[in-house]
Design a protein around this nucleic acid. Structure first.
Lengths: 223, 223
DNA sequence: CCTGCTCTGGAACGGCGTTCCATGACTATT
DNA sequence: AATAGTCATGGAACGCCGTTCCAGAGCAGG
């Protein structure tokens, strides 16, 4: 017999996978990655930790589901323009921006890159590289580079966000990096000294786009 | 008064930061990232977990020190050739290869990219981009892209190694990915189907180099 | 009303990072 | 040689964590 003929809807505040994942996202956003524990989550949902395990197998699955939710929502709103390069920038930026809002997504993506939503990124970006004129034989390498650059930036953004939980701490954190860099011997590390000042004033989003353009420029000659 | 006029050398088997870090590297290499606990480490060193804290402040510092040791060793053996692009490849490969041998370095680098050894990477790679003819104004973006691509590949290599602890499991793991990819509708995901086969046979090191060349090719027009 | 299922929530388990502290090992001073 | 004082050790203990267990609440069909 069908185990669930119609939706049970036992009570109004019933637990569900969706409600749990939504609550986990809230916890991650508001209090950071370390705050997501089954106890805190159970408390937030006014239940016991055991109840959660009825809907979610373990913490890895919970983090994957949360990442998946955020990522697929971010990818849903991409407008496919006429210029393939612009569309590639839009794809990359939608992931980048999602990670700036939810840094824990970057951490998770670096740890578990094969999320289902990433398949979406592969499909869409390879289509654009194809439109760009990249031959089939080079497609894989282009898309790989695109995704790995994306994941590297994602991880770095997440790591930065971990150190400056509030945006106001940004100058202090950057100053500390500059200080550690310039402490080195300028004779032995001339370029580090040269770049140190740019670290202080750099815009992460702009640097991300500039690096992306390097890859796109490199993909052109691959035609 | 000088607290330590000459080296104490109290006993032959004395604990030391070096011995602890070396032991931690051994544990990480032989049994994986999850096996590194202060208890297991203390057991390996025939001591108590409390003794370790006299030399190392906490687990983060231990992982940083281990990463630093492996990374600076890897960077030490780079021959600076005459071609800047080749030297850049050599720098990137030395990090990539170190991570293939010690996957946990990739995890750590994705979590904490500002290791002291990474300053070495910044210095050396920016010098090579400079030799390549990249103007000072674009140097920062080129080096950033280079490092972020490196870190993205590092994280992905580490993640892959986590799933196939023994090399023999590689085909099975790749087959599982291919299966999950090809399960999707070929009409909706044509490129994923196209790339799926290449995933099975791809060589990570070769793909890494191909992606790197995209960035190097993109950096050339930046002159 | 009873039976059997889904779902709940709190207790319990083993393991973790870290702290605490009594004590051993050694040096410097008398 | 005895003592004082510091460095270093290692095992116990604390508070958390993810996860498992299970008694029982709520509900459906016979």
């Amino acid at each position: 017999m069908d185990p669930r003929p119609k939706t049970p809807e036992r009570r109004e505040d019933a637990l569900s996978r969706e409600r749990i994942v939504a609550s986990a996202i809230g916890l991650l956003d508001e209090e950071g990655e370390r705050a997501l524990t089954f106890r805190a989550l159970a408390n937030r949902l006014s239940t016991g930790s055991g109840a959660i395990y009825w809907h979610i197998p373990d913490k890895d699955a919970l983090l994957s589901a949360a990442t998946e939710t955020v990522l697929s929502r971010a990818l849903a709103g991409i407008a496919g323009g006429s210029d393939p390069a612009d569309t590639l920038r839009a794809i990359a930026l939608s992931v980048f921006d999602a990670i700036e809002v939810h840094p824990w997504v970057g951490t998770q993506l670096a740890r578990e890159p094969w999320q289902p939503a990433m398949v979406e990124v592969f499909e869409r970006s390879s289509a654009q590289f194809d439109l760009l004129g990249v031959p089939r034989g080079s497609l894989f390498h282009c898309v790989s580079a695109f995704v790995q650059y994306l994941l590297g930036s994602a991880a770095q953004t997440a790591a930065a966000a971990r150190h400056k939980f509030r945006a106001s701490e940004r100058p202090a954190v950057l100053a500390a990096i500059v200080e550690r860099w310039t402490r080195r011997d300028p004779g032995e590390y001339p370029f580090v000294h040269l770049l140190a000042e740019q670290v202080r004033t750099h815009d992460e989003r702009e640097a991300f786009l500039a690096g992306l353009d390097l890859i796109l420029a490199g993909a052109k000659p691959a035609r």
